[in-house]
Write a protein that binds this DNA or RNA. Structure first.
Lengths: 224, 224
DNA sequence: GGCGTTCACGTAACAGCGCTAACTCAACGC
DNA sequence: GCGTTGAGTTAGCGCTGTTACGTGAACGCC
């Protein structure tokens, strides 16, 4: 209401200045404030540099002592969520030593659940214009260094076990196909939530069935 | 370099004021200028209200005489491109009276080509936060009123012709599955162009093969 | 104990953004 | 001639990300 347009940071406590080595703690506070703003509002628009600074209790330019620009801050917030998914969702499934095909199905369902549970994180990770900060989204980052490589291994195991048609493609291609198929469902659900189509669960079930078994009537047995 | 910060519109011709009935022509010029800025820059950032107004030769507030806000302007630019795709890409394939499964494959390839040819249009259509203008992305719009409904019919024909396994799902669900699968490839290619995965063509081929024939080894003939 | 350095900020400000209120000016119907 | 209306202007608000520059405290070092 009557907040002055230019006022000292309005965090609750007066926030005494951090000492020499304590810069890392402020950095974590900035990340936490940005995460809170993003999660509660569900929109990147709410995560302005000024809003983050105000929540932490510092002035906007102080953010730039810890992050080169806003894109790096936002990216780190999202990357941490995806690392969390890797630890708490993907790793347990891979460690459960399931049948390879069952593990693929479980991973797919868990991935969609994660995306729908954190739509704005997901959108910022995979649905923005990557030109804004190309080096963040280059190879060797969260995606490749995280779950994806281990899923390629899982696919290779399924191929080696004779569970997958060899003509379907190698493990890398199939991993990307599976990922893209599920990403399509998540991305469409996030970007166009009001579409009159089938429910996400229905789409996931049908997609998994289609990719695993195909939709067309198989040729009569014995044909090339 | 030395452009004054506030100057009269810098379009080439002095642009005489439109007469009473000529408002629609200005509206078209605004749309054309926005389309040109979007296509040439490849980024929504370049399509600011001020940039569009300057290209047309009017002042920024004049835009709002023809469009309620920026989102509506951008949306109309993108919607026109998609209508163009419907007329020049989808309709010819549907009119060619191909084998239903072949038509599905052709439509899928054409859809991916279109998305990669107009990445920013595609991103603005399907990969932005729809909260910004919900009524634009509601049901009955370009997607549903355009190609999608006719593809459901195509799928139904394929089902009626016995070309598709009945357990795979009904025509609506399968249409969404096909759309989501291809959208996943396009969306990933646009949002993360530097990923070290297989090429888009390879992904499309593998995806079509997977969805049509499945990736897992089929059960021995005669099992339930 | 003084001193230069460096970290961790704050102050002030810039350029640009979407958008609005209020005005002007010409064309039209009556 | 006159009120109305369509088309467009000027001026400006509040916001954004970001930068240049100053400040004050803590540190190593002589």
């Amino acid at each position: 209401m009557s907040t002055a347009p230019t006022s000292p940071p309005s965090a609750d406590r007066p926030r005494r200045r951090a000492r020499r080595g304590e810069g890392e703690r402020t950095r974590e506070e900035i990340l936490a404030a940005a995460e809170a703003l993003l999660a509660r509002s569900g929109s990147e628009d709410a995560v302005s540099i000024r809003a983050v600074a105000d929540a932490v209790g510092v002035t906007p330019p102080s953010i730039y002592r810890h992050f080169p620009d806003k894109a790096h801050l936002i990216f780190e917030v999202c990357a941490r969520r995806f690392e969390e998914m890797d630890r708490h969702v993907v790793s347990p499934i891979l460690a459960a030593d399931l049948d390879p095909v069952d593990a693929i199905v479980e991973l797919g369902r868990a991935y969609v659940r994660f995306g729908l549970a954190h739509p704005e994180h997901y959108r910022l990770m995979f649905m923005v214009n990557a030109d804004h900060s190309p080096e963040l989204y280059a190879e060797g980052d969260v995606v490749d260094g995280g779950s994806l490589g281990r899923i390629v291994v899982l696919l290779q195991h399924a191929i080696d076990a004779g569970r997958i048609r060899p003509e379907a493609g190698d493990a890398v291609v199939l991993t990307y196909v599976l990922w893209a198929a599920l990403h399509g469902i998540v991305s469409l659900a996030i970007g166009r939530p009001n579409l009159p189509g089938p429910s996400v669960d229905e789409q996931v079930d049908a997609m998994i069935d289609a990719v695993l078994h195909g939709i067309v009537v198989p040729p009569p047995a014995g044909s090339p």
